[in-house]
Design a protein around this nucleic acid. Sequence first.
DNA 1: TATCTAATTAGATATATATCAAAATAAAAG
DNA 2: CTTTTATTTTGATATATATCTAATTAGATA
Lengths: 191, 191
Amino acid sequence: MQLNRIVAFHKTMGDPTRIRIVHLLAKGPLHGQAIAGKLGLTPPTITHHLNKLKDINLVYQRRDKNTIYFYLNESVLQHQAKALVKMLEEEEELTLMANDEAAKVIKNFFAADGTLKSIPAQRKKKLIIFEHLMQGFKIGEKYEEKEVNEYIKKYHQDYATIRREFIINQYMYRENGIYEVNPKEMWAKSE
Amino acid sequence: MQLNRIVAFHKTMGDPTRIRIVHLLAKGPLHGQAIAGKLGLTPPTITHHLNKLKDINLVYQRRDKNTIYFYLNESVLQHQAKALVKMLEEEEELTLMANDEAAKVIKNFFAADGTLKSIPAQRKKKLIIFEHLMQGFKIGEKYEEKEVNEYIKKYHQDYATIRREFIINQYMYRENGIYEVNPKEMWAKSE
DNA sequence: TATCTAATTAGATATATATCAAAATAAAAG
DNA sequence: CTTTTATTTTGATATATATCTAATTAGATA
């Protein structure tokens, strides 16, 4: 469901410290202590906020010697800023129906303990389940095959099948045993 | 400072229930119980969220007989969604300098108890103080003269002068003793 | 005026989270 | 291998807030 992503973005940006960090990084990468100094806060606090910004893919990091530089991912910001408006412009019934329907499918196929009871046979339902599972991955991020397996195993023992489906349906792209999460535009659509 | 407004907007939108309310209202006005019904929540909870949405001017209401209909103010949404991106595109030094300067003026002219020590003589500083005071009003909202006076009195005993300045500098517009807060575009600029 | 309906307020509870100090890690440099 | 430096983790604290039930208010209608 797209709702979660939109909520997560706005929730993250709904904090003055994080806005100020983003504002700083818009001028160029900085390391943690520099941010802490400029904002008059301690390094642990900056780590805390950078984690939230990384969670929504807005910030990434690169190490140089002993210091880690944090970069702003401006395209994500541009994209998400528009997402809310777009969501409202979408076909009304469509969106809501889809959400209700998806919620029902998810409710039916997941057990109370959060594991996947079975893989749906119907393509449409299958995609709803897979898309739901994909929420545990970050778009654009790279994962080892082992990591992917471990993640899927938390939900279902047949991780190989599901991992293959992730590729078939273009949720992920594989190269040299490294899995990268595709942007959502590339994902399979149920209709 | 623009920061507050941007933070407030994103904070408000960073909640799934409020996004769903906005999504509903995008299709047309609704009354409270209808919203509560559609979302499976109780009326008090809806009131709570509608208040937050009204605080950022995203929702307004109109009464019809016994029921109050809530409307989405789409232009505010469009505008705010872009504000964050624009903020980052602005001249770096400019924005920050302006903020620092304004913060200094505010710090100098307000006492520790929050009251205004004196009205600045310099036009630029005066406008900074007035603009700060205006944050207690909601844009587009209408107020009785008495309400305006009461508000100003919390900060300074000479409410008449300040109230007059509000009109002169186009923060507000007066008609038949009713004061309406102008959109920010109309406000006096210090340069 | 009495009654009905819709909305709000009050009060309670549970959960989330921003921040810091202190401790632990991790990588580089000597 | 030890020391230094930057970052992260842990644990504590204070504050905010989403939600509910019960009580109250505000308007309309009879």
